[in-house]
């Protein structure tokens, strides 16, 4: 009985601690949301209180100035194209690398893997130069191709690891039935890779959506800005008017928040799978 009491006490303590920790985690976002509905003057009187009058003015301005729908659309387009490319080229390569036991396959795999440690800053200028020479710079599709190049090593690594745990029998049977390599891959193998594909889509979507430096270097046209770029560009302009800035920041976060609320189960699972498999 005594033991049980102390255990209840312990659990309560832990629960309180966790509630505080969770509040701490969310507080920056909550404070930002709260104050984004205030006038700039009200921020200076009481930052912790709810707005006396909920005003959407800041959001209207932010919506117009960030060219919100266009940037949102650009970002969705960029992320979709990149994911599409990454999944196709990496599933093919990752699968075949795992299934081929030759020296060549080891070398190719090794070259892919080592690059995962190269800091982006080491390839930055060369990348800008090459993209300009190949005329992929300044276009969202061009940026997507670059993301495929940079993102495929990690995806290949994950596909490689996943394929190793799939029994070969099904493929062998299909080959005996006269399937060629291509149909074998599209009809039989790719569907089996679905769980890891989901993980790869989630991890890369997070990365590309939140990437800043590469779009900054590659996209020159304002109409092609991603959400993050138009946010950053406005930040410099308004650096004294916090309520306006916060509205811009919250707008930039909004799609992420919505997606997370509805998909959090898959996202957390995807991240968790990705981590364990690497």
């Amino acid at each position: 009985m005594k033991r049980k009491l102390s255990s209840i006490f312990f659990i309560t303590l832990l629960t309180i601690f966790m509630i505080i920790a969770a509040l701490f985690t969310l507080s920056p976002i909550l404070l930002a949301v709260m104050n984004s509905f205030k006038s700039n003057g009200e921020i200076y009187t009481n930052i912790l209180s709810l707005p006396t009058k909920w005003s959407f003015d800041n959001y209207v301005t932010a919506f117009k100035n960030t060219n919100y729908l266009q940037s949102l659309f650009n970002t969705i387009w960029l992320v979709s194209l990149s994911l599409f490319g990454i999944v196709i080229v990496s599933s093919m390569a990752g699968y075949k690398l795992a299934r081929t036991k030759t020296k060549l396959s080891k070398y190719i795999f090794g070259i892919f893997v080592i690059s995962m440690l190269i800091p982006f800053h080491s390839i930055m200028i060369g990348l800008v130069k090459v993209s300009h020479d190949l005329h992929v710079q300044g276009h969202l599709w061009g940026l997507a191709i670059i993301y495929v190049g940079i993102g495929s090593p990690m995806a290949i690594f994950l596909y490689h690891g996943f394929t190793k745990n799939i029994p070969r029998e099904i493929e062998e049977a299909a080959l005996i039935d006269g399937c060629n390599q291509f149909t074998l891959f599209t009809k039989i193998v790719f569907p089996m890779l679905k769980p890891i594909t989901a993980t790869i889509v989630i991890l890369n979507a997070l990365w590309i959506w939140n990437d800043f430096l590469l779009p900054l270097l590659m996209i020159t046209d304002k109409d092609k800005y991603t959400l993050l770029l138009s946010t950053k560009m406005l930040f410099g302009q308004y650096n004294s008017d916090w309520s306006k800035i916060l509205a811009i920041l919250i707008l930039a976060l909004l799609p992420v928040i919505i997606v997370y609320v509805f998909m959090q189960k898959y996202i957390v699972k995807g991240v968790s799978d990705g981590a364990i498999k690497s």
Binding site: S131, H132, L216
Partner: peptide
């Protein structure tokens, strides 16, 4: 940004 553009042959 300007210097990155100039040096990579992507001058405005």
């Amino acid at each position: 940004l300007l210097q990155a553009r100039l040096s990579s042959g992507d001058a405005p």
